[in-house]
């Protein structure tokens, strides 16, 4: 069988959470955390998933690692439908799909030594004997730039950046094929962020894993990604390669998101499109286009009909560019003022 170029295919993924309360814990409403997300991830590449809090990006990551069971939709990993797999098959996937979490303070067991934390994946998957495992752990520490003496110390003895290195070491212990990084640098200081981003880039170059990089900071995501999907209220509103997303964004939300990023250059002219209002609640998303309540370009149709993610009909040179906006083509033609970027 010909291997598909895609290691991961997500089709129409939905994850709804019930809101319960009152007498007998009745269902009072639903949070539409992820509501119809589809994308494919090519082997060895990195897809960046960006969006603001509550847009569902973390939920997507957790559905892929099977930490959440999707409400509907399919997740196909390496040609296998995740919903149909149990037992040994699932264990194999769990070994190949690993996750790096945002908070390196909460995702490491404080009572275990670093050596124990890093040895655990090998024990669970019954790999090697004690001596081999110990050697593997010290190799791991070396790969993520920690001293071998770290093995016998506890997580609290390390700084945030070092702890994230431990988290990354654990995630790459079993040589995963797919690494899901959920906001891996947002809890870290600026000077440490770049160290961790470099480490992730180096490791990917060495081992060639595929990466789903979830973060809210578009500048960070763009730096490590090949492709970018912008999410808003549980849906992808724009998908294209990481250069096109900031050179020629089409969706009004993407444009606003880019123009809202404070540029570390006081001489940069900002053509800021400040969005009015707040993110609507994902438990009560607006009818029609979900962005219409904040969109400066909305027309009647946007309030009624939800736009679907369509290939953008523009002259731009991007080979793949999808956008969910009724007026994308028209707005692109109007050559709206783009923010000046350094």
């Amino acid at each position: 069988m010909q291997k598909s170029p895609f290691i991961l295919e997500v089709k129409d993924l939905k994850k709804h959470f019930p809101i319960r309360g009152g007498l007998f814990f009745r269902r009072k409403g639903t949070v539409f955390a992820v509501d119809g997300v589809s994308f494919s991830l090519r082997r060895g590449e990195t897809l960046g998933l960006v969006g603001e809090s509550g847009c569902g990006k973390t939920t997507v990551g957790r559905c892929i690692t099977w930490l959440y069971k999707p409400t509907s939709g399919t997740i196909t990993y390496d040609g296998i439908d995740m919903a149909a797999i149990h037992g040994a098959g699932l264990r194999k996937i769990r070994k190949e799909v690993q996750m790096v979490f945002q908070d390196p303070f909460e995702s490491l067991n404080p009572r275990h030594t670093v050596g124990h934390i890093l040895e655990e994946p090998f024990i669970i998957h019954r790999i090697g004997n004690a001596q081999q495992r110990r050697r593997a752990v010290s190799r791991l520490l070396d790969r993520v730039g920690l001293p071998g003496s770290a093995m016998d110390r506890f997580p609290h003895e390390f700084s945030g950046g070092q702890r994230q290195r431990i988290g990354i070491a654990r995630a790459i212990a079993l040589s995963p094929k797919l690494l899901i990084c959920d906001e891996p640098v947002s809890a870290l200081d600026v000077s440490i962020q770049s160290q961790i981003l470099n480490l992730l880039l180096d490791l990917q170059r060495e081992s060639g894993f595929t990466c789903l990089f979830i973060a809210h900071d578009l500048a960070v995501v763009r730096h490590v990604s090949d492709w970018i999907a912008v999410m808003y209220l549980g849906q992808i509103v724009e998908y294209t390669d990481a250069d096109t997303i900031y050179k020629a964004p089409l969706h009004p939300y993407t444009k606003a998101l880019i123009s809202a990023i404070p540029i570390p250059d006081p001489t940069a002219a900002t053509h800021r499109q400040v969005l009015s209002g707040d993110l609507p609640s994902p438990s009560d998303p607006p009818q029609g286009c979900r962005f219409h309540t904040r969109c400066p370009f909305k027309v009647k149709m946007c309030e009624k009909t939800a736009p679907s993610l369509q290939p953008a009909d523009t002259a731009s040179s991007a080979p793949v560019h999808q956008v969910a906006c009724h007026r994308a083509a028209e707005l692109a033609q109007r050559q709206d003022k783009q923010p000046n970027l350094p």
């Binding site: 990195t46 600026v190 000077s191 962020q193 770049s194 981003l197 880039l201 578009l218 500048a219 960070v220 763009r222 730096h223 490590v224 990604s225 090949d226 990481a242 250069d243 900031y246 880019i258 990023i261 540029i263 570390p264 970027l341 350094p342």
Partner: peptide
């Protein structure tokens, strides 16, 4: 050290 929108990716 800060990644900017204009720097070379990866």
């Amino acid at each position: 050290s800060i990644p900017r929108l204009g720097t070379r990716r990866k």
